[in-house]
């Protein structure tokens, strides 16, 4: 909140409930232009729902989303979609289209470019993610990491200002987690987009992001620089941060009881 100008994206007290299950209860977040903001939180705390509200897949019950100084509503949604890309946790690649066709699809369906131009731009995007050698393969013929890169290629081919990442590292081993974060950081610098990453990988998030936010029980409990996060004394923040220490303690306690019996 040190910025005097309004951030690229501002979420104000978003509410969402599914039947009796309250997922978001007034979540707010500021995403400054050009930054990489990570939203942390335990599984099932509504991180993905928050992102899907942004992407327009889920309609929030109450609250405001402001993008580039304008309220996001039915009239500005189309403009927002042109300038924003969404990376699904499952990648959501079109499995009956080749890698090249996957990347070309958003251009084909939302721009008036000629076929030749689309091909050039799509190949360029694939090349930047080192996938140009595999342009005629189908997503199922690519490895998990390559699929992730392909999804990112599809996301950046429209030259978005904002890219939303839904759990890009879910289910990956630590080495690949690092690789994915490196990839996000690298291309974020290269293409200068603003990134919002939802994850529960604390360590990587603290290293890579400019700002971190902690979502718990539908509210943003913490929002600030990674350094502030590591020194915060908030009980929820510290419990999330020190989960490894807590694990160490409980393991030690279990060992003691089993040794005593």
């Amino acid at each position: 909140m040190t910025d005097s100008s309004e951030p690229l994206l501002r979420i104000e007290s978003l509410h969402k409930r599914f039947d009796d299950n309250i997922v978001l209860a007034g979540a707010s977040l500021d995403v400054p232009r050009g930054s990489l903001v990570t939203v942390l939180g335990r599984s099932g705390t509504g991180k993905s729902v928050l992102l899907k509200c942004l992407a327009g897949i889920v309609t929030p019950d109450a609250g405001r989303i402001r993008f580039d100084g304008k309220d996001l509503d039915a009239s500005t949604r189309a403009d927002f979609r042109r300038r924003c890309s969404f990376l699904f946790q499952s990648n959501a690649l079109f499995d009956s289209l080749t890698a090249l066709e996957n990347v070309a699809l958003p251009l084909e369906q939302t721009t008036n470019l000629s076929d030749a131009e689309i091909r050039v731009q799509s190949l360029e995007a694939l090349k930047q993610l080192e996938l140009d050698a595999h342009h005629d393969r189908y997503p199922s013929q690519l490895s998990g990491g390559m699929q992730k890169r392909l999804a990112l290629a599809r996301a950046i081919v429209t030259k978005p200002e904002l890219v939303l990442f839904d759990e890009p590292t879910a289910g990956l081993d630590p080495l690949r987690r690092n690789a994915v974060f490196t990839m996000i950081l690298k291309y974020q610098r290269q293409f200068r987009f603003t990134a919002v990453v939802v994850t529960h990988d604390l360590d990587e998030a603290l290293i890579a992001s400019d700002r971190v936010a902690l979502l718990d029980s539908g509210k943003m409990l913490f929002e600030g620089a990674p350094t502030a996060f590591t020194t915060s004394t908030d009980p929820v923040v510290s419990s999330f941060r020190d989960s490894a220490a807590a694990l160490r303690e409980s393991v030690a306690a279990l060992r003691q009881t089993s040794a005593a019996s």
Partner: peptide, 20 residues
């Protein structure tokens, strides 16, 4: 079946987020 699988694997949601 094809559209059902596309719904199931979030391909339809992906189209919507692209503005398609």
């Amino acid at each position: 079946a094809e559209i059902g699988i596309q719904r199931n694997s979030e391909q339809i949601a992906a189209l919507e987020t692209m503005g398609v």
